[in-house]
Every structure is written in C-alpha cells, then in structure tokens.
Amino acid sequence: MEVNVKEYKHCVLVTIQGRVDSATAPKLNEVFEDLLNRGRFKIVVDMSNVEYMSSAGFRVLLSAQRACRRYHRGEVVLALVPPRVLEALELAGFTKIFRRFDNLLDAIGYF
C-alpha cells in the first residue's frame, strides 16, 4: 500500500494505492492522525487505485470520519470507489456514513 497526500487550501487529497489490510492499515491511520493533529479535517480520499480493503481499512476510515465530523469542523468524503470495495462498504453499512463522488473535481469542489 502507498499513500500520497496533497494539501490544498480548502481540503486535503489522500490517495491510497494497493491493498489495505491488517498489516497496512496502521500506516494509513498514521497519515490520518497526522492530518488531524495539524487541524486538517476536510479530506477527500481517492480510492481509484485501491485493489483491496478489509475491515481493518474500514475501521481507519470510520475513526477518521468520526474525528473530522466532530464539532462540524469537517468531513471525510470518498472518491472513485472501485466496485468490489464499494460492495464490501455497502455490506458494512458504510455507504451511509461517507459521501461519495464519481470524480475528483467534484469531490475537491465539495469543500
């Protein structure tokens, strides 16, 4: 798994590539923790290159969403979620918790 962060004035774009499981999820969590510690609460996650994500990855997204939504200071939104990952997110009931976008421009423009 690779994670890239691009910071814009109004939001942050987090791009995840590869596979997120119990082995790699802690690294993803560190990226979110760092952003939250620096007061960046408006986050777009580009999921287009996520090959696989287990519940370990879902938990990281959930905890980031909880921290960002606190005091209405921000939100985590998901962009370009691949079909297989989306099906699993739906099973977990996560599609109700995350706003989704079909392209990056709309996702970034949301903030």
Partner: peptide, 13 residues
Amino acid sequence: LSKRKAGGLGIYL
C-alpha cells in the same frame, strides 16, 4: 456515525 462501534465488523463481514 456517533453510535457506530468498530468491533465485530470482521466477523460480521
């Protein structure tokens, strides 16, 4: 979101 618990998700899935 506020009432969502992270545990048990793996077994549920």
